[in-house]
Design a protein around this nucleic acid. Structure first.
Ligand code: FES
Ligand code: FES
Lengths: 154, 154
DNA sequence: CGCACCCCGACAAGACTGGTCGGAATTCCA
DNA sequence: TGGAATTCCGACCAGTCTTGTCGGGGTGCG
């Protein structure tokens, strides 16, 4: 289970846009953003496309155009960004990749499904609790304290 | 972000073994297990290999041989099974797929990394809190209540 | 008009997932 | 002693997903 570059780059891009001005200032060109963040330009464009379609950013076309955040950074969470770039945060495999039509049908009482549902909830709750503003400062912030040690149960 | 069949099948297999007797009883052959659970036989063998190497199950070789759980089902968590079948629960992408050597180096204070560390902790804590015994009964159990509604923050 | 920029679908190399196969080693049993 | 059953293990392979790239079209500024 891992995070892909879609989400990783999306966050970098969102943070970048959050640091550059708001609606009033001039929008940031995709090319320029990619250059200063050292990311592949064409790829960044693809990502911005997804972010725009999800309503995370807005765009201005034509010369002198570019992108800017659609909302206040405090109102955008990591969950929003991840859901925009991939198309979900946690894919319920029993829905999208059912191991067996019988076993995974909603009617059958599979004992495993509640585990994934519980996991999905924890993931969504956590990612939904981290707004972009949390990623703008240098100090980790209270929500993200490492809380040292959580060793394996074996 | 999703669960693969490695973990899914591993859980099915572990639950199956938990339901069949303990050390005293005769071990379960991989072939037989695969047949009753309707899983690809050769694949099940691969998975049992991983589970054995991780110490989740033990095996008896030769005719009449097979597999059985190495520990009490109450002492094996979903996290253990997942870590055995994949080789982790949550892959820290900034370690294994660093976006940029500079940006992801442990010395640089990246604002995003604490988010993934926090996420990893939540995932591990949750999966580590669900023992196999929780998956043997028909009722979901207190830990896994759906807690209806957790709508998007947008 | 020409340039800068966004928009969008198609394509492609490499990695990963989900298995399959062939054969060696071990143990039981007739 | 000779199968037969079974675990052990690495190699292989087809399909999908990831991580981009490319080419062209639309749009607005100067
Ligand atoms: S295996 Fe898919 S719902 Fe349980
Ligand atoms: S992008 Fe890898 S550590 Fe932040």
């Amino acid at each position: 289970m891992r995070i892909t570059t879609w989400t990783e780059y999306s966050l970098i891009i969102s943070i970048h846009l959050a640091k550059r001005g708001r609606r009033g200032a001039s929008p940031v060109a995709a090319r320029e953003l990619a250059e200063v963040e050292r990311l592949p330009a064409d790829y960044v464009e693809q990502i911005l496309l997804r972010l725009r379609r999800a309503g995370i950013v807005e765009s201005v076309r034509g010369a002198k155009g570019g992108y800017f955040l659609a909302r206040e950074p405090g109102l955008i969470t990591v969950r929003d960004v991840m859901a925009a770039s991939e198309h979900q945060t946690f894919e319920m495999n029993c829905d999208t990749h059912p191991v067996d039509a019988d076993r995974c049908s909603p009617s059958s009482a599979c004992a495993i499904r509640p585990v994934w549902q519980g996991l999905q909830r924890r993931i969504d709750d956590f990612l939904g609790s981290v707004p972009l503003t949390e990623l703008l400062r240098d100090e980790p912030g209270p929500e993200l304290v490492p809380l040292t040690s959580s060793p394996a149960s074996s």
